[in-house]
């Protein structure tokens, strides 16, 4: 009895004692470069960015405090902001779902015994490999130009083509197509996910007489849903930040029909050096991306299935 009390009191004493770290000094030494980077190149710039957003600031003279004026101007008076936001939202709403749809369908087709699988995977992945480069943008500019490949193709069927890049109603669509064409990396992720679904689930469903559509809806989709969520979040965040393609292929035009958000930000910040206003734009973009991501996560409770939680 007596020894019991002493032993339990020593345990309490031990647990109250501050935890002894095995390697506190080594830990911080190894982490030091990264921590310096986070403080100087991430944390400090974030604070400064918010400060700049409350000022009028060209890089040449000192920031002049204006409070929330930049924000109110952007939100209530700036037509270019509205146009660029509209273009960006349209881009995200079309590019992301189509890209993921293609990625999923092709991944499912490739997830079978197929001769030459790695060859096909390579061919399909290829456009993603070089997707963001200037080179591809130049290619696209040519393919969808007045005398480009697309017009030659429809010329065979007797249609007269136009310059798809220079028409306000098709310019954005060509950029969306360019991004959808690069569905390869999402596809590779889906393919890896599909390979992890246990085959006996499908076998058991076959025994019960399920057809492929039931299997797809009841097995493939739920088992793959965490990966769909991952791809959806990553692709959405990326799509909001689209820049290079619009900058090279269409330069935002014609009549601002492809003037995406980051292009506006770039032009204000680094062509006109209105760094305060550009910072406010950046924070609004961050907020929009955060809201979009939060909505995706919120909706995911309805459709993402986690095995270790025993389903919903």
């Amino acid at each position: 009895m007596n020894s019991d009390i002493t032993s339990s009191s020593t345990t309490i004493a031990l647990s109250r004692k501050p935890k002894r770290w095995e390697s506190p000094l080594a830990g911080y030494l190894f982490l030091m470069p990264w921590i310096v980077g986070i403080l100087v190149l991430v944390a400090y710039p974030m604070v400064m960015s918010f400060y700049y957003s409350l000022t009028n600031y060209t890089i040449l003279d000192t920031p002049e405090w204006v409070g929330f004026q930049n924000y109110s101007e952007i939100l209530f008076e700036d037509d270019t902001f509205r146009q660029s936001l509209k273009v960006t939202l349209l881009f995200v709403l079309f590019a992301v779902p189509f890209k993921l749809l293609f990625a999923l369908v092709v991944a499912m087709l490739l997830n079978k015994e197929i001769r030459g699988l790695s060859f096909y995977r390579t061919m399909i992945y290829f456009p993603s490999l070089i997707g963001g480069s200037i080179a591809i943008s130049i290619l696209w500019k040519n393919i969808f130009g007045k005398e480009g490949f697309i017009n030659q193709l429809i010329g065979i069927f007797g249609f007269e083509g136009k310059s798809w890049i220079n028409s306000p109603d098709t310019a954005l669509a060509t950029l969306i197509l360019l991004v959808v064409w690069q569905f390869g990396s999402s596809m590779v992720i889906f393919l890896a996910g599909l390979k992890q679904i246990p085959l006996d689930l499908y076998e058991a469903a076959s025994v019960d007489g399920a057809d492929w559509f039931v299997k797809f809806r009841k097995i493939t989709l739920p088992m793959l849903s965490p990966i769909i969520l991952f791809n959806l979040v990553m692709q959405t965040i990326t799509a909001f930040q689209m820049f290079t393609q619009a900058f090279i292929i269409t330069k935002g035009g014609p009549i601002n029909s492809t003037y995406v958000y980051v292009m506006y930000l770039y032009e204000l910040g680094f062509a006109r050096f209105q760094m305060g206003y550009a910072s406010a734009l950046a924070w609004i973009l961050l907020l929009i991306i955060a809201i979009a991501t939060a909505l995706v996560f919120l909706s995911s409770r309805q459709w993402v299935f986690y095995e270790n939680e025993g389903g919903k």
């Binding site: 095995e22 974030m46 965040i237 760094m275």
Partner: peptide
């Protein structure tokens, strides 16, 4: 390694994984 605030720093790492870079562009340039 085992050191104080390890979990905190790891959480920071995960946050920066998703942080869109545009917010940092202007001040980093400055």
């Amino acid at each position: 390694l085992d050191f104080p605030l390890r979990k905190f720093w790891f959480a920071i790492l995960l946050v920066t994984l998703m942080l869109p870079g545009q917010v940092l562009t202007v001040p980093q340039y400055v």
